[in-house]
Design a protein around this nucleic acid. Structure first.
Lengths: 154, 154
DNA sequence: TGGATTCACATTGTGCACAATTAAATTGCT
DNA sequence: AGCAATTTAATTGTGCACAATGTGAATCCA
């Protein structure tokens, strides 16, 4: 039981802290999102589509993928499930049959009203200084940028 | 494209920063762990088993689960894959047939030698102040504790 | 002691993630 | 014009996560 190598101690791995907290936070979202009948990744996709708006050109699958860092292998079936629920339509672009445009339906937009309550309710149940969360978010985002802009060397 | 509700803006969600960074970090580990023919969750399980040591009683499935916050639905197939690779054995405890004890094989222990290089190589390729990572890790761990000790209220 | 409860793990089913491949359409180049 | 290269999604296959349920074993306890 004596750990001989601090470098391999689980509690010393940042990656594990990140992994465990991410799952714990997702678990917090789950009951809230269940009221919207959304999974957590589905919720993120809806955030992107709501943010993209209904005025300009509809978002493409690759737009959503670029925003969330997810590929079509993940998004295609997820989007089909959202479509099956009537939250959006997937239509091939006329002048370029390769691209699929994602258009929110009325139901998709209406879900936004319910979703508005989610962030607040989550923070409430958390009982943590908002400042602390904002600082953490900034740090996480900063590290993400660093990681994405550097080669995955050695 | 104009975001009308800051509360729903993707970039304001801590959860997304956490989710995206976690996947980016896991992606960094992937090529390193591929040399050991381990996935990231498999690597975490091996860390637990190495840490548990070979002197006392072998770890139970539930011990690993408690440490990693994973249930048997995730661990059972994962452990069977590690067993199929010859890294460990799974044996029912004689005096309590409910319990499965996990014993590392010689190959399982030898893999530890290779694994020792992983954390260092990852940090190296990261090019971030170690202090910053340690501080972040502490913050993540602290929040995990807070989350686990509070009710998942509304 | 016997019956209900709890415990430890396994199984089943759904939904991500991601690598690798495929396929169709567009663009670039000469 | 015509062919290669690129772009955009979809498909296939593997491996987590996790809810729900099942199964057998141990425990509680009236």
């Amino acid at each position: 039981m004596v750990q001989q190598d601090p470098a391999l101690a689980l509690d010393n791995q940042i990656c594990f802290a990140l992994y465990a907290l991410n799952r714990a936070v997702t678990a917090r979202y789950r009951p809230l999102l269940a009221e919207l009948e959304l999974t957590y990744p589905q919720y993120l996709v809806m955030l992107v589509l709501w943010e993209h708006g209904g005025d300009g050109e509809p978002a493409r699958v690759s737009d959503v993928g670029a925003r969330l860092r997810l590929d079509s292998g993940t998004l295609t079936p997820l989007l089909k499930r959202l479509q099956a629920r009537g939250l959006l339509t997937r239509q091939r672009q006329a002048n370029d049959e390769r691209v699929v445009r994602l258009v929110l339906t009325e139901a998709g937009w209406q879900l936004r009203t319910l979703a508005r309550q989610v962030p607040g309710r989550l923070i409430c149940g958390l009982d943590v200084e908002p400042q602390r969360l904002i600082a953490l978010k900034q740090e996480l985002r900063s590290l993400l940028v660093t990681l994405e802009n550097s080669e995955p060397s050695a």
